[in-house]
């Protein structure tokens, strides 16, 4: 028993052929372009070229191969690291706004236009993108919380660090709890992808669950991290805004990929009604399916 009990995502080094490697690169490229390109003609062009490349190389076919699935572990690492750094994304926002201190209302490109990425026609690619968004969102929430934890330890008011105030401690503790739940859920979806592939029958349900749990967690982290930072967190010179803006954009895109937050909830609710049980639906969605090799 003990021998078989290993974390699913820390499996032995996997054999990867050219197809798997290509997919890793494609996935990473997709998210890089998606995240960094300013919302202008060039961005649209780049996105189209990535999509074209995916279409040419058979993205969906690649997604169906076991090697490509396993390459997700690599892709996930890249995706998370990029989302955490957020450095190029900050450049993108600056480009989009021409480095003007514009309000969101005055310059919708900061937020609204950044979320115009729709869902790809290919259903499996949409599943892959949704999973990528979940990984990005968790990484960005973690980065926002890390900044907040550093800030409350460094910043002193009333003669002591903010971190020593219980109200501050509890606010960030709650945010960390929501992040932990989000990470557990997106890791579960990633494990499902690695094991069963894009065509897994339960992966859409797990992504719907992730869209709901992450969507709420973003509100909690967005609220808590800005609240503890005070006004400095609401500026362009301090890095928190990079993560906050990413979270808002990526959440909208994640919900769009799942055709809307309420649709995600209703689909899961319908599954429970169909199964005549809330609990039995939970255990069914979490039961590993057959490996699709």
């Amino acid at each position: 028993m003990t021998g078989t009990l290993q974390p699913v995502l820390s499996a032995d080094p996997m054999v990867r052929d050219a197809a798997g490697r290509a997919f890793t690169d494609l996935a990473a490229d997709w998210f890089r372009h998606e995240a960094t390109s300013p919302d202008d003609g060039a961005r649209t062009q780049k996105r189209r070229s990535v999509l074209d490349a995916v279409a040419e190389l058979g993205f969906a076919d690649a997604l169906a191969s076991p090697d490509a699935r396993e390459a997700w572990v690599d892709a996930a690492t890249i995706i998370r690291a990029q989302a955490r750094s957020a450095a190029p994304i900050d450049m993108a926002v600056l480009l989009a706004t021409g480095d003007r201190p514009a309000s969101i209302a005055g310059d919708p490109s900061v937020y609204e236009c950044a979320i115009d990425a729709g869902a790809p026609a290919d259903a499996q690619a949409a599943i892959a993108l949704a999973l990528g968004r979940c990984l990005q969102i968790c990484a960005a929430m973690e980065a926002a919380l890390d900044l907040s934890l550093q800030y409350v330890r460094d910043r002193k008011q009333f003669g002591r660090p903010l971190a020593s105030f219980q109200a501050i401690q509890h606010s960030l503790a709650i945010a960390a709890e929501e992040l932990a739940a989000s990470t557990a859920l997106s890791d579960l979806a990633l494990a499902c992808m690695v094991r069963e592939g894009c065509a897994s029958v339960r992966l859409p349900g797990l992504l719907d669950a992730a869209a709901l749990v992450l969507g709420h967690a973003i509100d909690v982290v967005y609220d808590a991290s800005h609240q503890v930072h005070g006004a400095i967190g609401f500026t362009r010179e301090y890095p928190l805004h990079r993560h906050s803006l990413n979270l808002l954009r990526w959440r909208d895109h994640l919900h769009r990929l799942r055709s809307g937050e309420l649709r995600s909830a209703e689909r899961l609710g319908d599954a429970a009604l169909q199964a005549q049980g809330v609990w039995s639906t939970v255990t069914a969605l979490m039961k590993p399916g057959d490996r699709h090799d």
């Binding site: 557990a184 995600s264 909830a265 319908d270 429970a272 009604l273 969605l285 979490m286």
Partner: peptide, 30 residues
């Protein structure tokens, strides 16, 4: 509540049940 959904379950009930399932999956995984 699920057992009382009736033949045409309310969208609000469907939504609530879905949100319950979602959070339960996260908690159970942890």
């Amino acid at each position: 509540a699920l057992q009382c959904a009736g033949a045409r379950p309310s969208p609000r009930l469907r939504e609530a049940l879905g949100r319950t399932v979602a959070k339960l999956i996260a908690l159970r995984s942890m």
